[in-house]
Design a protein around this nucleic acid. Sequence first.
DNA 1: TCTGGGGTCCTAGGACCC
DNA 2: TCTGGGGTCCTAGGACCC
Length: 424
Amino acid sequence: MTSLFALVDCNNFYASCERLFRPGLNGKPVVVLSNNDGCVIARSQEAKDLGIKMGDPFFLIREVIQQHNIHYFSSNYELYGDMSTRVVDTLRTFTPHVEVHSVDESFLDLGEFKFLDLEVYARHIKDTVYQNLGLPVCVGVAPTKTLAKIANRLAKKSKKADGCLILTDPYHIEEGLKRTAIEDVWGVGRQYAKFLSTYGITTAYKLKHTTDAWIKKHCSVVMLRTVKELRGEPCSDLEINPALKQNICTSRSFGKPVESFEELLEAASSYAAKCAFKLRKQKSCAKEIMVFVMTNRFADTPQYTNSRKIVLPTATNSDLELIRYTKLALESIYKPGYQYKKTGVIVMDLIPDTNVQLNLLDSTDHGKQQSLMQFLDDLTAKFGKDTVKVACQGTQQKKTWNLNRDYLSPCYTTRLLDILTIQI
DNA sequence: TCTGGGGTCCTAGGACCC
DNA sequence: TCTGGGGTCCTAGGACCC
């Protein structure tokens, strides 16, 4: 009984989403920028062809952008998240066995379909997503997830494949691996690619034919799994119900440097509230909280980075509680006179919210907190985020520490309420 | 002026126990 | 003063992914 996986991957996902609602941009170069419009995180094919690289700082490529009339957007995660959900909904009409691997990639277990004409089936998936949503995807099918990744990549690159590639025939697998550079193998990062190359292992094919003993000795058990997957031996199953997160982190770089404690606290409190919201969404409570601050490592100014972890007396997912300890932590690491660039809040040691053990020395009324947060979440669901918040998150509309998002597209598919509010 | 954010998994080494 | 070895738990840090 051999296994069979499909990897469905949206092409240039963020750029494609931006283009959906601006059909005039079809065929034109488009890039999407990271938070604070810092660097390029997505490119349309035309932008790639112009030599724009992933991670290129925006300010360094301004000239190229103007010269070739490249269209650029601030990242609009509301839009991408919504489109992502719709893609997955479409994929689930093919099989319930879908692993949402990232915002633009899903694995499908096609084990039950191996007697179908896979070529036809894969193309049907691709065409259906395009018909329903207008988003182009590529489909790679193979006996393991690692091979499906490679099939998908070849499907994207090869004109002949035209977006769909079935990699099940042993001869085709070998040929595919020969055409895959070592750094393009899933699980081989920059460090290992460099290391393996020094031993002449420069392709997926050569990696596949390296002995287990050598891999174990020089690499890791993780790499060994990758090698086995290249040989067609599945080491990773579909994860349909993802495990609850073990840590949740919310952090941002500031639009402008921040010096005052008050502003830093506004930002950190907002991130703590965001963590609390994410905790409630997965029905967890945190037993520890960590707050960090850092200055701009690229700037020629005095540098300072520090963090403080606090073990909470009672596990919680309340905005108020987490903000209280965020403030304590921040007070203990804040030093005046520095230009802070970033702060963040990480909640750790998460447990199900039904397993919270009360602490006798803790005087907080947790029942009251819980109903307050439920009420707050209801308000948010009804009226949008930040309808109600804790005062130290700040009340000014435009905060100095806010993100720069100067080139934001409208949230076409969500945020109806915002649009209404503006019109009123 | 301007360089992202949010995760996972594994390993090594120290502390501690018996 | 000499002085073993194995197990567990925790933490920090590295590598990777998208």
